[in-house]
Protein backbone atom coordinates (compact mmCIF):
# COMPACT_ATOMS: atom_id res chain seq x y z
CA UNK A 1 0.00 0.00 0.00
CA UNK A 2 2.86 2.34 0.83
CA UNK A 3 4.40 1.49 -2.50
CA UNK A 4 1.11 2.21 -4.24
CA UNK A 5 1.07 5.67 -2.73
CA UNK A 6 4.67 6.14 -3.85
CA UNK A 7 3.71 5.25 -7.39
CA UNK A 8 0.86 7.72 -7.13
CA UNK A 9 3.04 10.54 -5.92
CA UNK A 10 5.67 10.08 -8.62
CA UNK A 11 3.03 10.02 -11.34
CA UNK A 12 1.29 13.00 -9.83
CA UNK A 13 4.57 14.87 -10.02
CA UNK A 14 4.92 13.83 -13.65
CA UNK A 15 1.46 15.07 -14.42
CA UNK A 16 2.19 18.38 -12.70
CA UNK A 17 5.00 18.92 -15.18
CA UNK A 18 2.24 19.62 -17.66
CA UNK A 19 0.00 21.75 -15.52
CA UNK A 20 -1.98 23.54 -18.21
CA UNK A 21 -2.83 20.34 -19.97
CA UNK A 22 -3.90 18.84 -16.65
CA UNK A 23 -6.24 21.74 -15.87
CA UNK A 24 -7.77 21.83 -19.34
CA UNK A 25 -8.34 18.07 -19.39
CA UNK A 26 -9.90 18.16 -15.95
CA UNK A 27 -12.29 20.90 -17.02
CA UNK A 28 -13.12 18.85 -20.11
CA UNK A 29 -13.74 15.84 -17.93
CA UNK A 30 -16.11 17.97 -15.90
CA UNK A 31 -18.22 19.20 -18.77
CA UNK A 32 -18.54 16.19 -21.04
CA UNK A 33 -20.55 14.05 -18.58
CA UNK A 34 -22.21 17.18 -17.28
CA UNK A 35 -23.85 17.64 -20.67
CA UNK A 36 -25.18 14.11 -20.39
CA UNK A 37 -26.77 15.05 -17.14
CA UNK A 38 -28.24 18.23 -18.63
CA UNK A 39 -29.88 16.07 -21.29
CA UNK A 40 -31.36 13.85 -18.57
CA UNK A 41 -32.56 16.99 -16.81
CA UNK A 42 -34.20 18.37 -19.95
CA UNK A 43 -35.79 15.00 -20.60
CA UNK A 44 -37.47 15.14 -17.23
CA UNK A 45 -38.77 18.60 -17.98
CA UNK A 46 -41.06 17.01 -20.56
CA UNK A 47 -41.83 13.70 -18.92
CA UNK A 48 -42.23 13.71 -15.18
CA UNK A 49 -40.94 10.17 -14.76
CA UNK A 50 -39.62 7.08 -16.55
CA UNK A 51 -41.33 3.92 -15.38
CA UNK A 52 -41.99 5.42 -12.00
CA UNK A 53 -38.49 6.84 -11.49
CA UNK A 54 -38.28 10.53 -10.78
CA UNK A 55 -35.53 12.91 -11.83
CA UNK A 56 -33.85 12.89 -8.43
CA UNK A 57 -33.87 9.14 -8.22
CA UNK A 58 -32.28 8.88 -11.64
CA UNK A 59 -29.79 11.56 -10.62
CA UNK A 60 -28.78 9.47 -7.64
CA UNK A 61 -28.33 6.44 -9.86
CA UNK A 62 -26.36 8.53 -12.35
CA UNK A 63 -24.02 9.98 -9.74
CA UNK A 64 -23.20 6.59 -8.21
CA UNK A 65 -22.29 5.16 -11.60
CA UNK A 66 -20.21 8.15 -12.60
CA UNK A 67 -18.38 8.30 -9.29
CA UNK A 68 -17.44 4.66 -9.55
CA UNK A 69 -16.42 5.12 -13.16
CA UNK A 70 -14.25 8.18 -12.59
CA UNK A 71 -12.49 6.73 -9.57
CA UNK A 72 -11.74 3.47 -11.31
CA UNK A 73 -10.53 5.29 -14.42
CA UNK A 74 -8.19 7.32 -12.25
CA UNK A 75 -6.76 4.45 -10.25
CA UNK A 76 -6.99 1.49 -12.61
CA UNK A 77 -5.83 3.39 -15.68
CA UNK A 78 -2.80 1.10 -15.87
CA UNK A 79 -5.08 -1.75 -16.90
CA UNK A 80 -7.14 0.45 -19.19
CA UNK A 81 -4.07 1.47 -21.18
CA UNK A 82 -2.30 -1.84 -20.81
CA UNK A 83 -1.85 -2.43 -24.54
CA UNK A 84 0.77 0.31 -24.66
CA UNK A 85 2.61 -1.35 -21.78
CA UNK A 86 2.77 -4.52 -23.86
CA UNK A 87 3.75 -2.77 -27.09
CA UNK A 88 6.62 -0.83 -25.52
CA UNK A 89 7.89 -3.95 -23.78
CA UNK A 90 7.49 -2.39 -20.35
CA UNK A 91 5.74 -5.50 -19.13
CA UNK A 92 9.10 -7.28 -19.24
CA UNK A 93 10.37 -4.64 -16.86
CA UNK A 94 7.45 -5.34 -14.55
CA UNK A 95 8.32 -9.03 -14.58
CA UNK A 96 11.90 -8.45 -13.46
CA UNK A 97 10.81 -6.55 -10.36
CA UNK A 98 10.02 -8.39 -7.14
CA UNK A 99 6.41 -7.27 -6.75
CA UNK A 100 3.08 -8.63 -7.95
CA UNK A 101 2.12 -7.78 -11.49
CA UNK A 102 -1.26 -6.39 -10.44
CA UNK A 103 0.23 -3.86 -8.05
CA UNK A 104 2.80 -2.77 -10.59
CA UNK A 105 0.29 -2.39 -13.41
CA UNK A 106 -2.02 -0.41 -11.15
CA UNK A 107 0.91 1.76 -10.24
CA UNK A 108 2.04 2.26 -13.81
CA UNK A 109 -0.52 4.91 -14.58
CA UNK A 110 -3.00 7.20 -12.90
CA UNK A 111 -5.38 9.49 -14.69
CA UNK A 112 -5.71 12.39 -12.30
CA UNK A 113 -7.71 14.46 -14.76
CA UNK A 114 -10.72 12.33 -13.81
CA UNK A 115 -11.03 14.61 -10.82
CA UNK A 116 -13.20 16.73 -13.15
CA UNK A 117 -15.66 13.94 -13.73
CA UNK A 118 -15.62 13.02 -10.07
CA UNK A 119 -16.43 16.59 -9.00
CA UNK A 120 -19.26 16.65 -11.48
CA UNK A 121 -20.76 13.43 -10.13
CA UNK A 122 -20.46 14.64 -6.54
CA UNK A 123 -22.32 17.81 -7.44
CA UNK A 124 -25.09 15.74 -9.02
CA UNK A 125 -25.11 13.52 -5.93
CA UNK A 126 -25.55 16.48 -3.62
CA UNK A 127 -28.26 17.85 -5.87
CA UNK A 128 -30.08 14.53 -5.78
CA UNK A 129 -29.71 14.09 -2.02
CA UNK A 130 -31.03 17.56 -1.35
CA UNK A 131 -34.18 17.03 -3.32
CA UNK A 132 -34.99 13.39 -2.86
CA UNK A 133 -37.61 12.37 -0.34
CA UNK A 134 -35.83 9.60 1.51
CA UNK A 135 -35.48 9.11 5.22
CA UNK A 136 -31.78 8.36 5.65
CA UNK A 137 -30.51 5.94 8.23
CA UNK A 138 -27.13 4.34 8.80
CA UNK A 139 -28.00 1.26 6.71
CA UNK A 140 -28.86 3.34 3.72
CA UNK A 141 -25.66 5.34 3.99
CA UNK A 142 -23.59 2.18 4.22
CA UNK A 143 -25.41 0.81 1.22
CA UNK A 144 -24.68 3.95 -0.76
CA UNK A 145 -20.97 3.75 0.04
CA UNK A 146 -20.91 0.03 -0.78
CA UNK A 147 -22.52 0.81 -4.11
CA UNK A 148 -19.67 3.12 -5.09
CA UNK A 149 -16.92 0.77 -3.88
CA UNK A 150 -18.45 -2.20 -5.60
CA UNK A 151 -18.89 -0.19 -8.78
CA UNK A 152 -15.21 0.73 -8.74
CA UNK A 153 -14.30 -2.95 -8.43
CA UNK A 154 -16.54 -3.95 -11.31
CA UNK A 155 -15.13 -1.30 -13.64
CA UNK A 156 -11.62 -2.29 -12.56
CA UNK A 157 -12.46 -5.93 -13.23
CA UNK A 158 -13.56 -5.11 -16.75
CA UNK A 159 -10.36 -3.17 -17.35
CA UNK A 160 -8.42 -6.19 -16.16
CA UNK A 161 -10.28 -8.46 -18.54
CA UNK A 162 -9.55 -6.07 -21.37
CA UNK A 163 -5.90 -5.90 -20.35
CA UNK A 164 -5.71 -9.69 -20.25
CA UNK A 165 -6.85 -9.79 -23.87
CA UNK A 166 -3.67 -7.85 -24.73
CA UNK A 167 -1.68 -10.98 -23.99
CA UNK A 168 -3.25 -12.58 -27.03
CA UNK A 169 -3.91 -9.70 -29.35
CA UNK A 170 -3.55 -5.98 -29.29
CA UNK A 171 -6.01 -5.47 -32.08
CA UNK A 172 -9.70 -4.76 -31.67
CA UNK A 173 -9.57 -3.90 -28.00
CA UNK A 174 -12.25 -1.26 -28.54
CA UNK A 175 -14.65 -4.13 -27.87
CA UNK A 176 -13.99 -3.70 -24.17
CA UNK A 177 -15.41 -0.19 -24.30
CA UNK A 178 -18.82 -1.72 -24.95
CA UNK A 179 -18.71 -2.92 -21.38
CA UNK A 180 -17.09 0.07 -19.70
CA UNK A 181 -18.49 3.05 -21.57
CA UNK A 182 -21.57 1.08 -22.56
CA UNK A 183 -22.06 -0.16 -19.03
CA UNK A 184 -21.70 3.34 -17.72
CA UNK A 185 -24.24 4.77 -20.16
CA UNK A 186 -26.72 1.98 -19.46
CA UNK A 187 -26.47 2.06 -15.71
CA UNK A 188 -26.80 5.77 -15.25
CA UNK A 189 -30.49 4.98 -15.58
CA UNK A 190 -32.21 2.43 -13.34
CA UNK A 191 -32.10 -0.96 -15.04
CA UNK A 192 -35.87 -1.45 -14.80
CA UNK A 193 -36.45 0.80 -17.80
CA UNK A 194 -34.68 -1.69 -20.09
CA UNK A 195 -35.76 -4.90 -21.73
CA UNK A 196 -35.55 -8.16 -19.81
CA UNK A 197 -32.39 -9.52 -21.51
CA UNK A 198 -30.44 -6.33 -20.87
CA UNK A 199 -31.49 -6.39 -17.24
CA UNK A 200 -30.37 -9.98 -16.86
CA UNK A 201 -27.06 -9.38 -18.62
CA UNK A 202 -26.16 -6.45 -16.41
CA UNK A 203 -27.20 -8.30 -13.27
CA UNK A 204 -25.75 -11.76 -13.70
CA UNK A 205 -22.96 -11.49 -16.29
CA UNK A 206 -21.52 -8.09 -15.57
CA UNK A 207 -23.17 -7.24 -12.29
CA UNK A 208 -23.66 -3.51 -12.70
CA UNK A 209 -27.26 -3.99 -11.61
CA UNK A 210 -26.10 -5.09 -8.20
CA UNK A 211 -24.28 -1.84 -7.60
CA UNK A 212 -27.04 0.56 -8.42
CA UNK A 213 -30.44 -0.67 -9.48
CA UNK A 214 -31.04 -3.33 -6.83
CA UNK A 215 -29.63 -1.48 -3.81
CA UNK A 216 -31.31 1.72 -5.00
CA UNK A 217 -34.62 -0.09 -4.67
CA UNK A 218 -33.72 -0.56 -1.03
CA UNK A 219 -32.63 3.03 -0.49
CA UNK A 220 -35.75 4.38 -2.16
CA UNK A 221 -38.04 2.00 -0.25
CA UNK A 222 -39.30 0.34 -3.41
CA UNK A 223 -38.63 -3.19 -2.16
CA UNK A 224 -41.36 -5.69 -1.43
CA UNK A 225 -39.97 -8.56 0.58
CA UNK A 226 -36.56 -9.16 2.07
CA UNK A 227 -34.76 -5.85 2.30
CA UNK A 228 -31.49 -7.32 3.48
CA UNK A 229 -30.88 -9.09 0.20
CA UNK A 230 -31.27 -5.87 -1.70
CA UNK A 231 -29.07 -4.03 0.70
CA UNK A 232 -26.27 -6.53 0.41
CA UNK A 233 -26.31 -6.97 -3.37
CA UNK A 234 -23.30 -4.64 -3.80
CA UNK A 235 -21.25 -7.29 -2.03
CA UNK A 236 -22.05 -9.79 -4.74
CA UNK A 237 -20.85 -7.24 -7.27
CA UNK A 238 -17.54 -7.20 -5.49
CA UNK A 239 -17.16 -10.91 -6.12
CA UNK A 240 -16.87 -10.03 -9.79
CA UNK A 241 -13.25 -8.99 -9.26
CA UNK A 242 -12.23 -12.51 -8.19
CA UNK A 243 -12.60 -14.25 -11.56
CA UNK A 244 -11.00 -11.21 -13.16
CA UNK A 245 -7.89 -11.62 -11.03
CA UNK A 246 -7.76 -15.33 -11.85
CA UNK A 247 -8.12 -14.71 -15.56
CA UNK A 248 -5.41 -12.06 -15.33
CA UNK A 249 -2.91 -14.47 -13.78
CA UNK A 250 -3.79 -17.01 -16.44
CA UNK A 251 -2.98 -14.33 -19.02
CA UNK A 252 0.36 -13.58 -17.38
CA UNK A 253 1.21 -17.29 -17.57
CA UNK A 254 0.34 -17.33 -21.23
CA UNK A 255 2.53 -14.28 -21.84
CA UNK A 256 5.42 -15.93 -20.10
CA UNK A 257 5.20 -18.98 -22.31
CA UNK A 258 4.80 -17.15 -25.61
CA UNK A 259 6.48 -13.85 -25.05
CA UNK A 260 4.21 -12.15 -27.53
Amino acid sequence: MKLYLRYMSILFKSQMEYRTSFILLSIGQFFVPFLTFVSIFLFFQRFSNIRGWSLYEVALCYSVTHMAFSISECFARGFDSFSSTIITGNFDRILVRPRTTILQVLGSKFEFTRIGRLTQSIIVLIYALNNISVVWDIYKIITLILMVISGILIFTGIYMLGATLCFWTIEGLEVVNIFTDGGREMTQYPLSIYKEWAKKFFTFVIPFGTVNYLPLMFILDKVNGNKLIYMLTPLSGMLFIIPCVLIWSFGVKHYKSTGS
Partner: peptide, 8 residues
Amino acid sequence: KIISGILV
Protein backbone atom coordinates in the same frame (compact mmCIF):
# COMPACT_ATOMS: atom_id res chain seq x y z
CA LYS B 1 14.50 -13.33 -20.93
CA ILE B 2 14.39 -16.92 -19.71
CA ILE B 3 17.16 -16.58 -17.17
CA SER B 4 15.76 -13.31 -15.87
CA GLY B 5 12.38 -14.95 -15.30
CA ILE B 6 10.35 -13.21 -18.00
CA LEU B 7 9.80 -16.28 -20.18
CA VAL B 8 9.18 -19.92 -19.42
